[in-house]
Amino acid sequence: MPALTDGIGEDLGWRGFSLPRLLGRRGPVTAGLLLGVVRLLVVQLAVSGGLRPPPSDGGTAATPT
C-alpha cells in the first residue's frame, strides 16, 4: 500500500512549483523534457532502492557476522 500513497503530493510539486518556473525561463517543450528527465531519474532511484533511508542501526544489519 505505501507504493500507492508515497508520492501523493509529489506531482503537485513537479507541476505546481517546478513547471511554472521552468516555463518562465524555457519553452514548453524544453520545460517538459527537463521535468521528464528529472522525474525519470527519481522514479529509477526509488525503484532501485537508491532513495531508502539508512538502517537505524548504523548500517551493521547488512554486514555478515
Score class of each variant (00 low, 15 high):
L34T: 00
L34P: 00
R52T: 11
R21V: 10
A31Y: 02
G49L: 01
L33S: 04
Q44V: 13
V47R: 15
W14Q: 11
L34H: 06
M1Y: 14
G58Y: 09
D6E: 12
R25E: 04
G9H: 08
P55S: 13
A61Y: 06
V37M: 02
L45G: 07
L33N: 02
A3F: 07
V37W: 06
R15S: 12
P64D: 13
L45D: 13
V37H: 03
L12N: 08
G59Q: 14
T60A: 15
R39C: 11
A61Q: 12
A61F: 05
R52H: 05
T65M: 06
P28I: 01
G58I: 02
L45M: 15
G24L: 08
L19E: 09
G24N: 09
A61I: 10
S56Y: 08
L40E: 11
A62N: 09
L4E: 15
P53K: 05
L23H: 11
G59V: 04
T63R: 15
D57P: 14
P64K: 15
T63V: 15
D57Y: 06
M1G: 12
T5D: 06
L34W: 03
P64V: 08
R21C: 01
E10H: 01
A46W: 01
P55L: 04
V38L: 13
P2A: 04
L34K: 03
L23Y: 04
G7Q: 08
P28W: 10
G7D: 14
V42L: 07
L33C: 01
D6P: 00
R52Q: 12
S56I: 06
V37E: 02
R25A: 05
A3S: 09
G49F: 07
S56E: 14
D6G: 02
L35G: 03
A31C: 01
R26H: 14
V38N: 02
S56K: 08
V42D: 14
V37K: 03
A62T: 09
S48F: 10
G50K: 04
T60Q: 12
D57K: 06
G49Q: 07
L23A: 09
T60H: 15
P54V: 08
L12Q: 08
G13L: 04
G50Q: 03
T30Q: 15
G36L: 01
R26P: 00
L51G: 06
L33Q: 05
